[in-house]
Amino acid sequence: MSLSLKRSPIMEETAYPNVGTILGQGAEAIITVVAFNEGIAVKKVRPAKTYRLPQLDTKLRKSRTNQEYKCIQRAEKAGILVPKIYHISKPESSLTMEFIHGKAIRKVLIEYQHDYISQHPSIIQTSKQSTLAPQPADPYELTPTEPQNDEPDIQVDDNQFSTAQSSDDVQHPLPNTPPLQTEDEDIVHSRLVIALDDQIKHIAEELGTILAKLHDANVIHGDLTTSNMILTPSNQICLIDFGLSYASADIEDKAVDLHLLRRACTSTHPALLSFYDLTLQTYASKSVNSTSVLKRLEVVELRGRKRSMAG
């Protein structure tokens, strides 16, 4: 299953990063590029947290590193492309693994979205005219039944995968700020719906297949964002960052995993929500338990406990 690329935007970023480059630093781990066997590798270290009791700290870092390692292994066994683990150091709580070449899918999608809009400038205009959504009458009103989804779903493109726009991205302007003048590009984008080309469709289908395999192997990724998926030069998708992963057969866990992907999609490339829909559609056709997981996903999305929270 290889993609036919006209001019591969993915191939551009094939230069190796220098040894010592910090690829990422979160609250828990630091990821750096290290020299390995005449080439390079990625090293993920969980440094000690001096604020907590040493014995608790050691236990947590060890078990989390171990869990990450196990989940990567499980995923690999399920036939998913993941970084190869070269070395695991328990005292240091570090994993040394393969450096994955390619481009984050997040980047691929954002560039596609950007290119599409610059090639079809009229789409913004159409969207502006048709998105005069009615504003809530009184934004101060706080009643127990505060409406959360008062924004109508506006579709610019009648794409077959078009979907309801989440209220996460909708901004309620304050009464003294006129809604239209303050609308920046991002907000306009969040109301656009862009058609997918064959390449993007293929990525979505690949991703749906991968997620189905992952969940059928009872691995929950825990941090499904398009930044954690790399499109390799050979057009395969490699799943990375299993730092929050765990093993579970629970449909709730699987549904929440998918929900996180949706949330990530709506906040990073909102006009391409159809990408998520196609991914989900493929997932549904490939995963063994998809019926019950998707049913639970509806419940999870409706629950909305955290709808308007973290971006």
Binding site: E28, K49, R52
Partner: peptide
């Protein structure tokens, strides 16, 4: 408290 500090740090990084 270790749990609380950990989630606070995560939010700060985020």
């Amino acid at each position: 408290f270790a749990m609380l500090i950990e989630v606070t740090e995560r939010a700060m990084a985020h």
